[in-house]
Design a protein around this nucleic acid. Structure first.
Lengths: 135, 135
DNA sequence: GTCAAATAATCAGCTAGCTGATTGTTAGGA
DNA sequence: TCCTAACAATCAGCTAGCTGATTATTTGAC
């Protein structure tokens, strides 16, 4: 596996790491995609397009994630007064509570590494390079 | 985004990097999951369970990927003579040709990095840590 | 003022992961 | 020998990504 291309190592590592969260999140009725949204709403309500942009995801994908979050009572969507095309997405109390509970989950479950800073730097530069033409 | 947990950076980077392959592979009638299989068959036929194990994927997922590869003519599945539970999966000529064409694709499309070796080392240790209890 | 273009969200439909349950085959112990 | 446990593959059904097409609303040019 040491001969695998770096991109494939990246995909594989990401997928394996996600497994660790699923069990813990499942008990709270959350998914990882949902947790990302609850995090992004930390600073206040956002439109769906803005949420999708910040999560680096399509608006269609975000739409469905929000549908589930709303159904679970973690989020409310209300039509924007000034622009009826927009939905303002806000966390409910239940959403804020769930986020508080999972706050440190991602970091806690990540396997400890020697060169964690170098890894973060590399990932950020990959994201920056790949986001350029897309987001 | 610099404040995101490392695991989330990992997922996001992996997803963004995959976008780059899709277009190129699509023209060859391949998907990334399929390409991984064609690579794993480099050294000869394998059972589906073995393929799933090496790709770090469930056998159900592999089963479906192989179904599509076989349908596209890139792979053949034949029942094992000695153990009728097993399927021996082998590349066809078309499969070998497709693999030859995409051989360097993953590496070529990966954004150039300063500390690529450190990244690979970190990813390999993450995979090792996460694989331990699962594969 | 009207009509075309842009924008926000959604619908339809695809692949790739996953879990849980099922079918067919093999191997091993009573 | 038979019957149960293990194993290989698949079926059914879920979420999360994606593309392409559609609907409703707003904006802007004429």
């Amino acid at each position: 596996m040491a001969s695998w291309p770096t991109g494939r190592l990246l995909s594989t590592a990401a997928r394996l790491v996600e497994h660790a969260w699923v069990e813990a999140l499942d008990q709270l009725g959350l998914t990882h995609a949902g947790m990302v949204v609850l995090h992004l709403l930390d600073t206040g309500p956002l439109s769906q397009t803005e949420l999708a942009h910040r999560a680096r995801v399509q608006t269609q994908t975000m739409s469905r994630t929000l549908e589930r979050l709303e159904q679970g009572g973690y989020v409310v969507r209300t039509r924007d007064e000034h622009d009826a095309r927009r939905h303002a997405v806000a966390r409910t109390d239940a959403g804020a509570l769930a986020w508080a509970r999972t706050r440190t989950l991602e970091a806690d479950l990540f396997p400890p590494l020697e060169n964690a800073d170098a890894l973060r730097a590399a990932l950020l530069s990959i994201i920056a390079a790949s986001s350029a033409r897309r987001w």
